[in-house]
Design a binder for these strands. Sequence first.
DNA 1: TCAAGATTTGGACAATTGTCCTACAGCGCC
DNA 2: GGCGCTGTAGGACAATTGTCCAAATCTTGA
Lengths: 193, 193
Amino acid sequence: MAATDTRAQIVEAADQLFYERGFEHTSFADIAAEVQISRGNFYYHFRSKDEILDAVIRQRLENTQAMLDGWEAEGAGPVERITSFIQILIVNQTKIMAFGCPVGTLTSELAKLGHPSQAGATGLFSLFRHWLARQFALMGHKPGDADQLALHLLARSQGVATLASALRDKAFVEAEVQEMCTWLSAQTPGRLQ
Amino acid sequence: MAATDTRAQIVEAADQLFYERGFEHTSFADIAAEVQISRGNFYYHFRSKDEILDAVIRQRLENTQAMLDGWEAEGAGPVERITSFIQILIVNQTKIMAFGCPVGTLTSELAKLGHPSQAGATGLFSLFRHWLARQFALMGHKPGDADQLALHLLARSQGVATLASALRDKAFVEAEVQEMCTWLSAQTPGRLQ
DNA sequence: TCAAGATTTGGACAATTGTCCTACAGCGCC
DNA sequence: GGCGCTGTAGGACAATTGTCCAAATCTTGA
């Protein structure tokens, strides 16, 4: 098999397992079983487990950026785009109710471990933050306000994800999403737009 | 030393370490170093690590209940009590910015581990949920509405805690707390109260 | 004071962890 | 066919994990 294929498979399996079991609770043996390679083979592609984590974070950054770019290319307005963001909670409902938000839980875990890649994980939040801020700016909000609105929405979706995985209550998630959409449509600055 | 003292010290140290480092990343050696006892001594007081976790959760349940009872005994109205809840984010700001919310992060970790004590940790949320719901009911909301408001507020504070530990931004926390208080004062059902 | 019980110690244990190393298989090129 | 390179296998390794146990120590009551 080509080296890049194996590498990609490792990153893919690690990405999923880090999400479902947590970074620390995922061992090389787990990933090896998933990809069906020997444990020793990792070290041809990576120098350490931390390096796999870095690759996973890099991939998540790319995928997230691609998703946001995709929403932006769809031609709809900022309100519709922000709605797409909110709807993640519905689209990924099953996984979120089982494992929480992949960004939030990874960040929390790395914070407790005092892990060097914390900054990388926080970068995932920054991607959403700045993208959301731009959408709010397009709605007519001043830059500072737009950023605050972005953080507010990010926090609310994080909270819903956390409670979703604790309570596993579908109705709760749907009610909160509904409320966020209502809130969004009320966020028109002054009378313009 | 009396057995109960040692036991209490173990639970106390475990409580703190589980919060700061996570349950799985805290070893017996870590707790032993903190309490200054030998590793083998644990098994006189507990049958397993999971049993320590259970004791920690039980203690947290008791402490939380005591805190809520305390707020209720202060004689102030429901709005002031709910404000006390919101203010946790300010009072415990330093720890929350470093390690997130003790309830939310523990729940997330146990969910990923598929740990049997998940239900116990979720019970911590229930405590807050029902207490908050009662306060909202005292404000004049119907039971169903009160519960939904309780969950909403719980979710928002969870979100703020998650983002606080990711961004470590004091101003963000304070702005969100401010906004939650504003939101709270707008939650009067109809014109009564 | 001494025996009995409660508490603690320190090490043994099997399993698992991340890491590393050497040997080997498959491949294209001379 | 033999050489060199890329990629893989599988085991060795030291450290750490949770668990368990027998011996030592402390405490208490008669």
